[in-house]
Simulated scan of single mutants.
Amino acid sequence: MTSSVAPAASAAGAARIVGVSFGHATLAEADHWIGGLSPAPVLACTHLVATPFPHVAISLLTVTAVATAPDLRPAADAAAAGQTGRAVRFPGVERLTGELTVSEILQRSSISRVEVLGSGPADPDTLVDTCDFVRPQFRGGELVLVTTPAAGGRLVPFERRDPTPCCAGH
């Protein structure tokens, strides 16, 4: 899965949303591809798409254009038009390491809200163990970090780098 990155055709080099699809089978594959982009996009989100087959497409807020194979163009277009996604790259992501309060997360990054799964907004003073892996959801123009309760009254991001497979012990 290779990509072709070329200068954007925009006049002033303004960042714009572009969609791309290379048929990545997993989120990890798409994350790895995003991590290799230079220059890094301002925002990069993954999107699960069904056409022409189930895979992960990507939307980027960038000044570069990315070529997509014609048969995957519908998936790339769907990613670019998507109102929801999973943010991999976003302003401040590099400052979200270790344990931080909800308030610090909001101050250090472009995340707009931190929620506790099934419970609503998280208290600003609650500690979040980021596990150095933060993947907020992009919803209707804002980034929302979904968390779950953890030991010691802390929170952890809902999405983990190495999740335990469902029914792993069965």
Rank of each mutant, 00 (worst) to 15 (best):
H24R: 10
L43T: 03
E99K: 15
T26E: 10
S103M: 09
L100E: 02
G92M: 03
A50V: 11
L127I: 15
A81G: 14
F138C: 02
T2K: 13
P91Q: 01
S10E: 14
A87Y: 04
V63W: 00
P41S: 00
V114T: 07
G13M: 01
P39A: 05
A122N: 05
L127D: 06
A87G: 09
L61D: 10
L37H: 07
R135V: 12
A40P: 04
I34W: 06
R139E: 13
G98W: 03
P149C: 00
F22M: 10
V88C: 06
A150L: 03
S21H: 04
A75N: 04
P91N: 08
R135H: 09
G23P: 03
D71F: 12
T2Y: 11
V63N: 07
G13C: 07
A30T: 06
D71R: 12
D77G: 13
H170Y: 13
L106T: 09
A30F: 03
V66W: 09
G120T: 08
F133L: 05
F158V: 05
T26W: 08
A80H: 04
G140D: 15
S110M: 04
Q83Y: 11
A14D: 15
F133S: 06
H47K: 02
A11D: 09
A44C: 07
C166V: 13
A76Q: 07
V116I: 15
I17T: 15
F133D: 08
D125M: 15
A76L: 03
F133I: 07
A25I: 07
L143M: 05
A11E: 14
P41I: 03
A65S: 15
S112V: 09
G152Q: 02
A50N: 10
P124R: 13
S59Y: 01
V128R: 01
P165D: 05
G169C: 11
R95N: 10
A76K: 02
V134F: 01
F53Q: 12
V134C: 00
R73M: 13
V42N: 09
A28W: 08
M1N: 13
T101C: 12
H47Q: 10
A65D: 15
A65W: 00
H24D: 12
F22E: 11
C166T: 12
V116P: 00
H32S: 14
H32Q: 15
D162N: 14
R161D: 14
G141Q: 07
G153I: 01
V88T: 05
E99D: 08
G169R: 13
A40Y: 02
I34D: 01
T46D: 07
G141A: 11
P74H: 05
V146G: 01
D31A: 14
G19T: 02
R139N: 08
L100W: 04
A80S: 09
G153N: 00
A28Y: 10
A44S: 03
T68Y: 04
I111Y: 00
T26Y: 13
V144S: 06
